[in-house]
Design a protein around this nucleic acid. Structure first.
Lengths: 198, 198
DNA sequence: GTACAGGTTCGATGGGTATCGAAGTATGGA
DNA sequence: TCCATACTTCGATACCCATCGAACCTGTAC
């Protein structure tokens, strides 16, 4: 289970049980222990309980242990999500899928956010990027709640900023919506995002 | 027993048994297992059988595991580490503790290193500093592996450069070693390091 | 509300493992 | 040669611990 979690993503108890080839009860038993020991953190989201490695220091230690023996490569958990939905889709009122995760990673890694408890806010440092989307600077800072992506198992933006972002990307035609939850990137959108390394 | 071996020295089964407060039989049982697992190496010398950590990678992994021990209490820096060990000690074959971390911070923050994947190298930009320690310029660049410090929770230098640095600081008498893992700064060492803002 | 899927708790079980006393092996020295 | 020391192997024991079936809890979907 720890090997499966080494990708830094979050998985449910059942998924990890399958990966380790044990029953959900047994997995639950160990996941509880590892959480209490501070190796894992638990993210409750609806009826799902996602487990993640507690931090990069845990991942480093695991890799350090693995490096002592040439251990078998982590068993990867394959997503059952259709690839067209996996790339970009809506999640209620915000962007999910690989696109949502890429945007989240770009904005957080550039330090354009401040933490405020469980929530956090997108600061004026992101103004240049958001300006291209027609989001005026004086709207910032905007609150946001990180939402664990179902297919990617990493975070994307939800909350006020998630809504604002989806609206802007639709109205600027960086992405096109449809009947389903699927979103389609436009040529222009792809170009503009690529300029920001997204 | 592994903790006792973290200083990189070799100890007999009886010594390690005493350190771990178990009988020699039990110690022998575990030492045999750890040797077969490649964690320890055995040095036969007369009727004595010395055990040592198999290498610096094992020491690194152990310190990495130790650094997780207090992870559940991330903000409370109540180290159970004795303060004399916390200031400066050896970690297998390199310098650990506050001193090791200060050196690491100084050298990395001055840009005297280049990254090369997980490892990195100390470049010739550090030549003036290292020259004072009697480390000739033509030895550079030297590879190094960052090692998470157990008591300080920051990195110090391990790998080739870590070993070189400890040897140099001992032979130039900037620090003095002893029986234990403790290192003692000399007047001269303190002065020379202070000149470099360390 | 009802069905259901995700997830946990409880209890029993079987295997594993750390432990130490006793006995055995090897080495060095008297 | 004989003993002391260092260490291991053997055997028995007690305990730990992972495991899973069954039952229970808890949100979601319809």
């Amino acid at each position: 289970m720890l090997l499966a979690l080494l990708d830094g993503k979050a998985y449910t108890a059942n998924e990890l049980a399958r990966a380790a080839d044990i029953t959900p009860q047994t997995a639950s038993f160990h996941l509880d222990k590892m959480s209490k020991a501070g190796l894992l953190v638990l993210l409750r989201q609806g009826r799902y309980r996602y487990f993640r490695l507690a931090g990069p220091d845990v991942a480093r230690t695991l890799e350090s242990i693995l490096s002592l023996q040439h251990a078998p490569l982590p068993r990867q958990i394959v997503s059952s999500c259709p690839s067209r939905l996996r790339e970009a889709r809506t999640c209620f009122d915000h962007i999910a899928g690989a696109l949502g995760v890429r945007i989240y990673r770009a904005i957080t890694s550039r330090g354009w956010t401040t933490h405020a408890g469980a929530q956090f806010a997108i600061t004026a440092a992101a103004a240049d990027f958001l300006g291209e989307l027609g989001i005026p600077r004086d709207l910032l800072p905007v609150k946001s709640t990180p939402c664990l992506d179902w297919s990617e198992r990493e975070f994307h933006f939800a909350g006020d900023f998630g809504r604002l972002l989806l609206q802007a990307m639709l109205s600027q035609r960086w992405v096109l919506g449809g009947k389903s939850r699927q979103l389609t990137m436009t040529e222009a959108g792809q170009r503009r995002l690529a300029a920001w390394g997204i």
